[in-house]
Amino acid sequence: MSAPAAASVAAEQTSTRAIAVAAGGGKARRVKDRLTSPWATAAAIVIAVIWTIPTFGLLVSSFRTPEEIRTNGWWNIFVSPSFTLENYADVLTIQGASSANLGSYFVNSLVIAIPAALFPIILATMAAYAFAWIKFRGSAPLFVLIFALQIVPLQMALIPLLQIFSEVLGISGTFPAVWIAHTIFGLPLCIFLLHNFISEIPAEVIEAARVDGANHTQIFFRIIIPLSLPALASIGIFQFLWVWNDLLVALVFSGGTADVAPLTQRLAELVGNFGRNTERLPAAAFISLIVPLIVFFSLQRYFVRGLLAGSTKG
């Protein structure tokens, strides 16, 4: 069997499984009728409401005047409705000599987050493949070490890394510095999560390809990548969110200038000295929320398929 044939077998296997789930739909509905009770539905709704109320309060607050925010609770909007877009206008249009407007920071955030989400995912997939399917001495201890690296507080890595960036590579305060830093900090968790997924790919598929003479590079591109795409997408979303919401790494490695610094830094500044302009924050926070939500919605379907293989063997 050739490598492509192996891939198609693999694809078949997953699709069989997907079909099993899909075909189970009919049955599942019947099962569900018995599994879910009104109580469960009620509980789900309660959780959903509780989890949404805080954010909803923020959304309401973003449309209230500073005076109202300070003197009474946001729920009063239902008693005495009021509405202003001034906070959003403030946040979006304010410019200064020290820092450009929000748009420029928005671009910076994208330019930081896209590579900083892709790099670690790709390198982690390669490493995860090696740990899962290439037998070598010391594989297990090395994997445990990488897993354990998750705990190194990144605060402690800032100084040595910045030292290397500024004295050896001369790239501190540039986008590549921020990308590399995020890549390093994201790798341990990405390798850990992807290893869980990749090691669950049926051994027969990979064995079949090997028998056909495929080497590791071929197996990686023809089998591993296509089969793990959903997992890559879902872990990619998480990595993207972490990078998008990060402030600390950006502060140190972007040098804090409007040329490189991300949205989060601008948001922190918008609050102003003495937290003088707190009323701007709800609006600003909502603006920064838009991109993560778009990413989540557009890739959400991968969450369902994404970690499918990883769960059955347990």
Partner: peptide, 17 residues
Amino acid sequence: GTQEAETQINVRAAAGD
């Protein structure tokens, strides 16, 4: 300018940056 400058200066100075 950044509000974190007072903290960050410790990092930047120690890192030779």
